[in-house]
Amino acid sequence: MKPRQFVPAFIVFVLIIALIPVFVGFNEYFILLATVVLIYGVITTAWNVMGGIAGQLDLGATAYLGIGAYVAGNMLIWWNITPWIGMFVGAIIAAGFASAIGYVMFRYGVKEIWYALSTLGLVEVLRVIFMLWKEVGGPLEKYLPRSKTDPFYYMSFGSYIPYFYIALIFLLITFLVNYRLRYSKIGYSMLALGSNEDAAESLGIDTRRTKLKGLFIYSFIVGAFGGFYACFCSFIHPNTDFNMNFALEIAVLGIVGGLGTYYGPLLAASILVSLKEYLRAVFGTIVLGIYPAIFGLAIILIILFKPEGLSSILKNVYIKLRKGGGTKHGRQQHS
């Protein structure tokens, strides 16, 4: 049931992204912009496992991101352990934490809007805890050690290009996880769960376990990415890492992109985050605070006029192209 036709398209797509630094003439500002887009892309694509495929409105992305950032960051600060290892440890701790919380929530039947609100609350609770917990956090930025001689070990580079490629690798992995999942048994269970929980349960799907699996995969990726995020920012701070608005943005991008497709979130992140950063750059100095309005309006317009999400545009183009090429119509995708 795998639509293999997507594989070549995917490879072309990755190559194009990989060449972005060349297209922009290695302009640091544009590469930074592209890296920010990728950061949103990675987290939203990971979110898609839980929010899109399994249909659980998770608003806690930055809870896991923050845990990953603090674990990797502190390991580097305290013990001088490279973030490459820290990332992995962070991922395990973030996923372990998420699973423990998730186990209790799913056990007690927390779902829908209540799941959304409690995951969002979790971000804020963690932010406050890390603010007060002076040993690991505290209200001051904790800067990560840097080194000119061994930037790779410290993941602290003088240019944005390495960050860009690390984020791209993350995106690739996340994308492949989504893709694999989407057409596997677990993926189908997740989709069924997201589509109609009672029906799925009555047909033999263990919805609690399915949710836990989704949450584990998602929080593992985001937790690992937290380590990278800490290095990218070059410091850790509760407001940066456990940021509610960031978590909300992720969910909104996922919804706007088109739930349950594996490319929609990335599409939304590319379009909307570029738009946002562009607006910030252009209007930020002229009219303070105008860009969230335009960003917000863009979201409203997309929801009202493209309720199936941005991915449906891509899908339609794709179907037209294939029809134009005289081949048989492609199999219907879930929207």
């Binding site: 605070g289 309005a293 917000g296 979201i299 309720p307």
Partner: peptide
């Protein structure tokens, strides 16, 4: 009214509205 029955879209919509208000207040 146009998104009744799709709670996710409604949440995204209201978040959009929220961003517009934040902006408005700042400007």
């Amino acid at each position: 009214n146009r998104t009744m029955g799709t709670p996710l879209s409604q949440i995204a919509l209201m978040l959009g509205v929220a961003m517009v208000i934040r902006s408005f207040v700042q400007i």
